[in-house]
Design a protein around this nucleic acid. Structure first.
Lengths: 350, 350
DNA sequence: GTGAAAGCGCTAACAC
DNA sequence: GTGTTAGCGCTTTCAC
């Protein structure tokens, strides 16, 4: 006789078997009903549903996943320190879009936090172990291990933002699609706007060079101002404080500047803070254009920021849709990457 | 003969079986090695490890969970709109603590976002389906469905913050422990400090009444000032804007107030903004004390906030430890709830 | 110390 | 339509 209490916390949840017995049908029938009930006669369906309710049956996820190879969950991985994730509204907006769309697909969002190198092992085990059906990865950096992991284990994935290298194969030779906004075009529009305002010494506070969004925005700036003094471009880190520091440097090096295109709103808010502290009038003396159009930042500054809008929430939703397409149609049909348009939003800072 | 290609995206990952064959041992031995290798002779261990590496074997999570009933993942659920989660540093700090401690236990953090009623169904399925070993729940509101779900499905859980009702049984009669700071004591200390400064008309901007942290802080305020004019207490919502609105109301009703104890730093920053806009000098005319001591908020205001510190990150870690204890020792031994001390941090605002 | 074998709870052919 | 049956990949007694 088998030990009746093998586990200290014996699971008391009813199984399919129990429901079947209770309803007087076979396990297969219960399974069919639980999974939509297609091809089962109505009276039986009702009978089973009743048994399910009475027993409080909930399917065991592991057992189901073991056979279907699907688990209705998608991981979101953002390779940024958690303080950035939780302070940059950009991420929260994108996550909102993803969350909504995932809900619509009845899938669970699993947010994986990565802090530091060592974490990749854990994340690898998590992804390769099949906890999730796919992954949405953001904020990829040049030296990121994630793409390699994704390729190696053929994890269905969609990138948020163009990865450094051209979209790689996932091991089966199919490329990993990405969703990105037209960073370069948006930057061009921002700088052209500044130029159209009569500004002649337009500086640029750039984002970290290991992210394509930052590089693309630099390119956009240079497209319009190919002969700009290199000293007019300084690097930031996409945080408000970083923007402030960059602005201070800029003011030291080129106190004569009359405009700044800042690679994101958060840095622009920091730059603005410095400008105000120095008594520099915005936009009269120095015009400022940001990027992102994060309402909570761009509308809260004084003056409000002129900026380049990207539909972050929409991009999040799009990422989910691409991933779902891939999941539904198999590895054979990879959806293409998509680049979404940007729009210049004029407020008071330029 | 069975169909060799049942699934379109056939899983090419090696199984235990494959590793066993490759290493020339049994599945049982491979399993033992993969799970620590206790009781297996060294040469065999090496042999198996080699096979694992060569084949790039990663255990299938679902299969393992099916038999062990453990899956090495813990859910964190915060029943707040996502903009709050991502804008209040309180959550990011707590999540950091949890994340670190979970890493130390080699467990995966799964952040579940709940937006609105309908989401509870999904979350219920997720929890009851056994995707995670346990759950850490925060920011419980009076009408929250989560406790009921947790009780009904006997999900091992630990609450962040004392729930409204006294800790409920989890269905087996054992209470769900919580980790909270001494809100009432901290509030008392804050108000006493204001009183010791000679302030006589101390107002209170409270948090939402459906959270015990807010209620406890009100109680602490009343402990010290039982006879305070009820008009001196107005409700906020723990956001900066809410704090600003509350301050405006307060200024209308009792323009003679000379101090405010604000239930959290974020609201205090909003209140401060209003005070400055009105030209009210802080702390000369109105002294201000906050709660939480979120560095990014309390140190960034002008003047910096005097506030009540709670060790948020530590509380997060503690929650994980309590949950792990419960997981390791079974449902029999429930760890007790813990209330952590607070500390008044004096800065310039009071 | 190691292997053989019995399931964990479920889905999906395949019979009937 | 519905039931029977064979696994999914793993852990874990239980023999040896």
């Amino acid at each position: 006789m088998p030990d009746p209490t093998p586990h200290p916390q014996r699971d008391v949840r009813p199984t399919l078997e129990a429901v079947a017995a209770h309803a007087g049908v076979s396990r297969a029938t219960v399974s069919r009903v639980v999974n939509g009930g297609a091809g089962v006669r109505q009276p039986l369906v009702d009978q089973v549903r009743k048994a399910v309710d009475e027993l409080g049956y909930i399917p065991n996820h592991a057992a189901r996943t073991l056979v279907t190879r699907r688990n209705g969950a998608v991981a979101v991985i953002i390779d940024e320190p958690e303080f950035r994730i939780f302070s940059d509204p950009f991420f929260s907006r994108q996550i909102r879009g993803i969350s909504r769309e995932l809900n619509a697909h009845d899938a669970q969002l699993v947010l994986l936090l990565v802090e530091g190198r060592g974490d990749f092992d854990r994340v690898t085990r998590y992804l390769a172990g099949g906890h999730v059906d796919g992954v949405l990865a953001f904020s990829l950096h040049t030296d990121d291990e994630l793409p390699a992991i994704i390729r190696r284990f053929r994890v269905p994935a969609v990138y948020g933002g163009r990865p450094e290298r051209p979209p790689e194969g996932d091991g089966a030779g199919t490329p990993v699609p990405y969703v990105d906004c037209d960073n370069r075009g948006g930057a061009r529009e921002a700088v052209r706007h500044l130029v159209s305002l009569g500004r002649r010494r337009v500086a640029h506070i750039a984002g970290p060079r290991d992210q394509t969004s930052a590089l693309d925005r630099i390119d956009g700036y240079r497209d319009v101002l190919p002969d700009a003094d290199p000293a007019l471009t300084v690097d930031g880190d996409f945080t408000a404080d970083g923007g402030a520091r960059a602005m201070e440097r800029l003011l030291e090096v080129r106190p004569d500047l009359d405009a700044v295109f800042v690679a994101n709103d958060l840095m622009a808010s920091g730059a603005l803070r410095v400008l105000r502290a120095r008594g520099v009038r915005v936009p009269e003396e120095v015009a400022l254009v940001g990027f992102d159009d994060m309402a909570s930042v761009a509308e809260a500054t004084d003056p409000p920021l002129t900026t380049v809008r990207q539909d972050v929430e929409g991009m999040g939703r799009l990422m989910v849709r691409l991933l779902m397409e891939r999941l539904d149609h198999g590895a054979g049909e990879w959806p293409a990457s998509v680049v979404t348009p940007t729009e210049l939003i004029r407020r008071a800072s330029a």
